[in-house]
Simulated assay, not measured.
Amino acid sequence: MHIPFPSTLVHGTLIKRYKRFLADVTLDNGEEVTAHCTNSGSMKSCLEEGAEVYLSPVNDPKRKTKFTWEMIKIDGNWIGINTSMPNMLAFEWIKNGVIPGLERYTHVKREVTFGDSRFDIYAENETEKCFVEVKNVTLKEGNHARFPDAKTTRGQKHLETLMQVKQSGMRAVMLYVVQRVDVDLFGPAWQIDPQYSLLLQKAHSAGVEVIPLQVQVLPSGFKLLGVMPYNLNTEKAST
């Protein structure tokens, strides 16, 4: 299932990313603009000055930046770096029943609280209730897609609460949206956040499901490619 961008994107070249949330870009017409970068992580393996980028225009008089940075081309492949997109994609695809393992839900909502955590998606049907946390994945190491690209205490909290969801008798899913096509195996980033990696193993052993979803990002929109294989062991064991 293909999901188009809501507006036509603008092409340019990355000058630099700075202050985490800003990126200077030269548009094809020579104009230099500052775009909002939603990705607060390190963006390791998807940041290259001088690379092609696409921005989406923003029509909001309250916003200082008039563009949002959507994707960057690395080694000939587009990588989606807008961290707000995976939530939207997951919601639409779960609602339409096209994600393997997450089909047949008749009621799907965004931003639902359980305990002291707010999860991205809640879905239910006549037989089950399911909480889904969505994470954006851009980090590449060899042929591996890895998460996170920076330490995440918030991510650890989500895993702890997903285990509580599972213990309460509901379905708990960790959905990783991999916004690049040059990888073929998903795993946690042990060297970057060993605590998160250990907790993901623990959560998986406790029944929290792991679904890495590979998505092809193009200037025209997003194409769901399918579920990737994963290995939650240490880096040495998974290479």
Rank of each mutant, 00 (worst) to 15 (best):
P4F: 04
P4H: 07
F5Y: 15
P6Y: 12
S7G: 09
G12H: 08
T13Y: 06
I15D: 14
K16H: 11
Y18E: 03
F21G: 10
F21W: 12
L27C: 12
N29G: 09
G30T: 10
E31S: 15
E31T: 15
E32D: 12
E32T: 15
C37R: 02
T38P: 01
T38R: 10
N39G: 04
N39C: 09
G41R: 11
M43W: 07
M43A: 03
K44N: 03
S45T: 14
S45E: 06
L47V: 06
L47N: 07
E48P: 02
E49G: 12
Y54D: 02
L55W: 07
P57G: 05
P61D: 05
T65R: 08
E70H: 04
K73I: 04
D75E: 15
N77E: 15
W78P: 06
I79S: 01
I79D: 00
T83W: 09
M85C: 08
P86R: 07
P86C: 13
N87T: 12
N87D: 14
A90K: 03
F91L: 12
I94M: 06
K95D: 13
N96E: 14
G97T: 13
V98C: 15
R104V: 11
R104Y: 14
Y105Q: 10
H107R: 14
V108M: 08
R110K: 14
T113M: 09
F114T: 00
G115V: 08
G115W: 13
S117Y: 11
R118G: 13
I121G: 01
N125Y: 12
E128Q: 15
C130V: 11
F131Y: 15
F131R: 01
V134Q: 08
V134G: 03
L139T: 00
L139Q: 02
K140F: 00
K140R: 15
E141Y: 01
H144L: 14
K151H: 09
K151F: 06
T153E: 14
T153P: 09
G155T: 05
K157P: 01
K157W: 04
H158L: 08
H158F: 09
L159G: 02
E160D: 11
T161W: 11
L162T: 01
M163H: 05
V165S: 00
K166A: 05
K166G: 00
K166M: 00
Q167M: 10
S168Q: 06
G169R: 10
R171P: 02
R171S: 04
V173R: 05
L175I: 09
Y176D: 02
Y176K: 07
Y176Q: 11
V177R: 00
V177L: 09
V177H: 00
Q179G: 10
Q179N: 08
V181D: 11
D182R: 08
L185D: 01
F186L: 08
P188E: 02
A189W: 00
I192E: 00
Q195L: 14
Q195C: 07
Y196S: 07
S197T: 04
L200F: 01
L200P: 03
A203S: 10
G207K: 11
E209L: 05
V210Q: 13
I211A: 06
Q214W: 03
S220T: 15
L224M: 15
V227C: 07
S238T: 11
S238M: 11
S238D: 10
